[in-house]
Design a protein around this nucleic acid. Sequence first.
DNA 1: GCTATCCAGTGACTTTAGTCACAACTAAAT
DNA 2: ATTTAGTTGTGACTAAAGTCACTGGATAGC
Lengths: 205, 205
Amino acid sequence: MDFDRSILSFLKQPLLDKVLAESSIKVFPKGAEILREEQYVKVLPIVLEGIVKVYSRFNDKELLLYYIQPSQSCVMTFYASLKNTPSKVYASIEEEAKILLVPVRLLPKWLKDFPDLNQLFYDQFNLRYSELLDTIGHLLTDRMDKRLYEHLKNKVEIMNGESIKMSHNQIANELGTVREVVTRVLKKLEIEGKIRQDSGEIKLI
Amino acid sequence: MDFDRSILSFLKQPLLDKVLAESSIKVFPKGAEILREEQYVKVLPIVLEGIVKVYSRFNDKELLLYYIQPSQSCVMTFYASLKNTPSKVYASIEEEAKILLVPVRLLPKWLKDFPDLNQLFYDQFNLRYSELLDTIGHLLTDRMDKRLYEHLKNKVEIMNGESIKMSHNQIANELGTVREVVTRVLKKLEIEGKIRQDSGEIKLI
DNA sequence: GCTATCCAGTGACTTTAGTCACAACTAAAT
DNA sequence: ATTTAGTTGTGACTAAAGTCACTGGATAGC
């Protein structure tokens, strides 16, 4: 159980002890798929380190829904587990992640014994809903150049890095568009002096 | 307190009595705005009869988010009230509605005393999130003709009526597009024999 | 009646994104 | 070293949606 306890500060004693006693910790490598659509869920993941990406797929198009950062959980998984319904989304590891796996069979009891825990999930639900609303707003009103630029800006912030190492194709997927469009728009952003690309890296300016 | 009690069957005794004792019922006329963005909320509405429309606005464009049908509540309002944060969405009356207004100051206590109540809100949150996901899916993959047709189909189903009486402009707003596009696409759907328009009514076929 | 306002219809045009086809480069694999 | 697969860059084209400008109808208020 080697991790920074302050990450779980949202869990008060004595709940924290109970959770830790029943849970396990696992490290997942970059790129690992941890949740497939239609999958039934048996553990609730709480991210301790790293970044998890949650996305949806429509026909052949994908769309990034949100990132789960340390001390956040996947509220979609929570609900799916609570109701024992299959997940509607996918999750994969964006940056190698250490994840606390909480067995869901104990959740109902904990929610009863520690009602404050509900707050946590309400907050997450609300957060994700708000993000989705923003996404819709962007889809509806912004053109690709703005969407792409905001996406990149958001990405470097969340990864708290300098640059982005992704293929144009991957980026296109996250935005629900196609490679050529990304290539073209990136070039345009480069000419406008907003980004710089070299050797497969994209740097914001 | 004149309404069909079975609509509130999701509230078990003795909570139901407490809620009814503290709440009031009000009838709102078609078109009334009951929630503005950025508004702080003091009552949680539970729809007993009629339909409430919840929508969002991005710059000048609107987009329909969901309908609240009888026995449903507005989970966005719930959260806003719980956290005392302003609402991010708008709500207006689509069909004259009888609404139970539950004062939010009592909610925290009730949630503690009757933990099952949380389920209700989780369900609503999940429902709304799923709907929003669908909306995004349609925005991302469907063209206007399909979006419009599905929208109309959905609308008659929810209103359980036969036809739709709305101006092209209103429809355009709900879909986040403009009047001319709706006019044109409706004409196209009419030629394809999927709908019929006469004297301001749209009938599905 | 006359006028103001809202609504539907439509042609012409522009813009944006997506599609197609193909060339050139890189890096890993045998 | 040669093949293979994945990646980027581009030009030409298409399709969809949005914009503009204007028409004629319907309706409500005075």
